[in-house]
Simulated scan of single mutants.
Amino acid sequence: MKPKNILFLVVATVIVAAIAYTLTGTESPEAYKEKIEAERERQFKFIRYNIDSPLTEEQKSGFKELDFYPIDPAFKVKALMVPVENKKVRVVPLTDGSEERYIEHSYAEFELKGKPQKLLLLQAIDEPDMRNFFLAFADETSGLETYGGGRYINARQDGKNSITLDFNLAYNPYCAYNPDFACPIPPRENIMEIAIEAGEKNYEK
């Protein structure tokens, strides 16, 4: 093959790869895995060492690691945000019987495991960044491999009407580690009828 043709082929390959990257908004599998692992390491260090950790000092002394499902990119989904009409305040019960208030902002609609999903996105009343949302959910692993009270995802709107939900980043509420903490219970809309085998597993005391 002539050098000119080789150069054309290389340039064409780079352009196609760039277009594919732009259209899918994805990153390389290696970079994605490193990002998730770094976040999991950050979580571990917070739980193990931070003064605000939900663990008692006795728990910290024997705490070696957090338990997670293997990283699976299939559980990272791009969802359509459908605004809640006539937004109102949702009173969310906590595990100790008290309550917190959030704004019912929108529904995240997507498909996972071949099934359509629709989850309610909540926003803290005092949230300073209107692109940040709180998702509390439960699924068919709850009470078995994962915490019975559900898990959480912090999500950020990344398009005019879209948001990425990465269940590999699903984490346990503080009450999964220590019952002295009060945690929001997932709304009924967010009880999923599939197994989310991604993110953090239950904490074994």
Rank of each mutant, 00 (worst) to 15 (best):
K115L: 14
K115G: 07
R131K: 08
S53Q: 07
D139M: 12
P93Y: 03
Y69A: 06
A138P: 02
F46L: 11
K118F: 07
A108N: 08
G62W: 11
A38G: 15
Q123E: 01
E58H: 12
G97N: 08
E127L: 01
L120M: 06
E100G: 06
E140P: 03
V77H: 02
P128T: 13
M81I: 07
E111P: 00
I103W: 01
I71S: 09
E100Q: 14
E109V: 15
K115F: 08
F110W: 05
R101A: 13
V84W: 01
L94F: 04
I36E: 05
P93A: 11
V89G: 02
G114C: 12
K113A: 07
M130G: 05
E34V: 07
E100A: 04
R40H: 15
Y102L: 06
H105G: 00
A136I: 03
K33E: 09
E58A: 14
K45E: 13
K35G: 10
P54W: 11
E41P: 09
L80M: 05
E37K: 13
G62Y: 06
T141H: 11
A74R: 01
L135V: 14
V77A: 02
L55V: 09
Y49A: 11
Q43W: 10
A124D: 05
F110I: 00
E34S: 12
K35T: 11
V82T: 11
D96N: 15
Q59G: 09
A74W: 00
K118H: 02
F63P: 00
N50G: 11
V91C: 03
L55W: 10
D129E: 15
L119I: 11
E58C: 08
K60S: 08
N132A: 06
E58P: 08
K35A: 14
L55M: 12
A124S: 12
R48E: 14
K88W: 04
K115R: 13
S142Y: 04
E57C: 10
F68S: 08
H105Y: 06
V84H: 02
P83N: 06
E104G: 09
E41R: 14
N86M: 07
P54S: 04
R42V: 09
E145M: 02
